[in-house]
Structure formats: C-alpha cells, structure tokens
C-alpha cells in the first residue's frame, strides 16, 4: 500500500516526505505515456471531476482537464467568477449544488486564502486546491519538485532561491513547505515591500539583493509580478524592478553553472525575467514544468479517487 492518508489535497503543509515521494513516483510513471500517441488510460473511468474556478485561469484549469481526461474520467469546467456569484449565490451553496450531482473530485481555485478548505468541509467528494488566495498551490509545488528531481536526481541538499513577489504568492508558500520537507535549503530574494512579515520564520534565508541571494544556488525560481503591483504601490516601476530583481545573465552568473531556471508562468518578459534567459534551452526548464504539471495532476487525481467507494446518498 502506498503511503498516502489524505482525503483532500488542500496544501503541502502536513505532508510527509514519503507521501510527497509517492506522488512524485506515481507522476513519474505518467510522463512517458503522456508523450505517446495514445494517452488514454482507464483508472478514472466513470469518475466525474469538476473544475470549479472562482478565479480566472487557463493554464492550471487546462492541465487538470487534460489530466482527468487522460485517466478516462469525465471532466467539466465551471467558471464561477462570472455567473452564480452575480446572482448572489454563496460559494458554499455553489459547492453544495455541485456536490448533489455526485462528482468524485472538485478541483477548486478561489481568490481568498482558506476558501478551498472551507468548501472541502461542506462536500463529500475529494477536493484538490488549485490555488487559494496567497495561501497554497500544492500541485504547482509538486510539479516543480518533479521537474527538479528529474534534472537533479533529488531534492535533498539543493539550494533553491525563490525570487520576486513572495508576499502575494501561493506558489512560494507551497514551495517553501515542500522544499523544506524534502531537505532542500530555501532562500527568498525580494524587495522588502514584497516580503511578508517574519518571512525568515518559515525556515528560509531572506535576501534583498539578487547577487547575494543567487550565490551558488542550484535552482532559481522566479515568481510573476502582477501588473497592478508594478506602478508605485509595491515597486516603483517595471524598469527599476527589472534592474534590481529581474533575472538576467548578469545576476545569474553567481549561481552554480548548472543552475536551473524555473517560473510558474505566465511570465512577464522584461519584468521579472529576461527573455533570453527564459528561453535558454540549457538553463530554463519552464516548458518542462508545464509538461510535468499534467503528470503530477494525474497522480493526484488517481491517489485521491483510488479508495473512494460510492458516495453516500444525499437525504
């Protein structure tokens, strides 16, 4: 029996190294089949997956949709930001309504931290957090881990710098958790306006200077800077941000020669990352991350539905 004792996948927090390894091993097995002409599997045949997105997403939603379909499940997408909310329905009512249709998995993204957990308490299917506010985005951290593991052979002992808008980033929070659990050393590099209070208590080293923060690192993870935060509120301008915190070859030079460059996407070229660096096939694994995303999500869906029986009847 594979070690995995969760009904939902709400966050990386609380996972053991073995559980993370289980997911990564399972995902690894999907990588090659996904590259074949016939990608269809049948482990989720008969299962229903609903992608319930309270916030716009193209990449993550598509990735989950493909993952569900390749495993043979039935996937439908619901974008709630535009429809029910305007009619006044609460998030929980929306979830209960969908729950009554007996889905097996709800994949949920919500702009508020903690909303996905609240929702998970009200339904009797498995729930996967596809990103809640600035809290967690566990499948992103898992796909990042798989990407690193395939290139570096493991995670333990690696030095990873996470750079940019840490304050608003759920990707950063999930990655900090996962990398710490797996024995990597995490550094955060950001201007002080983009760092949350007491960040150093997350088990990381904090830097405010790229050349110091990237010194001898194995992995450089860049984060997206939202457009609305670029013009004076958190940072003064895109050119200043790029000058001091954008990843270019000059700043990258202090990292290890074989350091990998990662970005959860979508990228702002010329803001947090130089175009050439982003497209450097020797260093950048950004496309690879997207590919691993489908494999990791397949593994998560599979694990969560493996032991589900028929749901109890709704009175």
């Amino acid at each position: 029996m594979l070690p995995f004792r969760h009904r939902h996948l709400l966050g990386i927090e609380g996972f053991s190294p073995d559980e993370i390894t289980t997911i990564l091993d399972l995902a690894e097995g999907h990588v090659e089949p996904n590259r074949q002409a016939d990608k269809k599997r049948s482990v989720m045949r008969g299962r229903t997956i609903i992608n319930l997105f309270f916030e716009n997403s193209t990449r993550t939603r598509t990735s989950f949709e493909l993952a569900g379909k390749r495993l043979g499940g039935d996937v439908i997408n619901m974008s709630v930001s535009g429809s029910s909310i305007k009619k006044g329905e609460t998030m929980i009512d929306t979830a209960m309504t969908l729950n009554a249709m007996h889905p097996d998995v709800l994949v949920v993204r919500h702009p508020e931290s903690g909303a996905v957990q609240l929702l998970s308490e009200k339904v009797n299917c498995a729930v996967i957090n596809a990103g809640d506010g600035s809290h967690e985005h566990p499948t992103q951290a898992l796909l990042d881990a798989l990407t690193i593991r395939r290139r570096k052979g493991g995670l333990s002992g690696l030095v990873v710098a996470i750079c940019g808008d840490i304050l608003h980033s759920r990707v950063a929070r999930s990655n900090i958790q996962l990398l710490n659990i797996m024995g990597a050393r995490v550094r955060l590099v950001a201007p002080r306006t983009l760092l949350p209070a007491e960040a150093e208590r997350l088990g990381v080293e904090v830097f405010h200077d790229m050349r110091r923060g990237l010194k001898d690192v194995d992995i450089v993870m860049m984060l997206r800077l939202q457009t609305e935060r670029m013009h004076g509120s958190f940072v003064p301008s895109t050119r200043e941000y790029f000058h001091f915190f954008g990843l270019d070859y000059d700043k990258l030079a202090v990292a290890k020669p074989d350091a990998l460059i990662m970005h959860p996407g979508p990228m702002n070229r010329g803001v947090e990352i130089d175009s050439e660096v982003a497209d450097d096939i020797d260093r950048s694994v950004i496309r690879h991350q997207v590919e691993m995303g489908v494999a990791v999500r397949m593994a998560c869906l599979e694990l969560l539905t493996r032991d589900l029986g028929n749901g109890p009847a709704i009175p």
Binding site: T193, H231, G232, S233, V235, P236, S237, R239, E240, H243, F244
Partner: peptide
C-alpha cells in the same frame, strides 16, 4: 519619495 510628490506611488528609489 513618491511620484510627482503626490504621496501615492513610490519613485524609482534604487535607480
């Protein structure tokens, strides 16, 4: 410290 001395948006202090 702020653009146009308007007290709202930060200037490019680093540059």
């Amino acid at each position: 410290a702020t653009k146009g001395l308007k007290g709202r948006e930060l200037t490019e202090m680093g540059l």
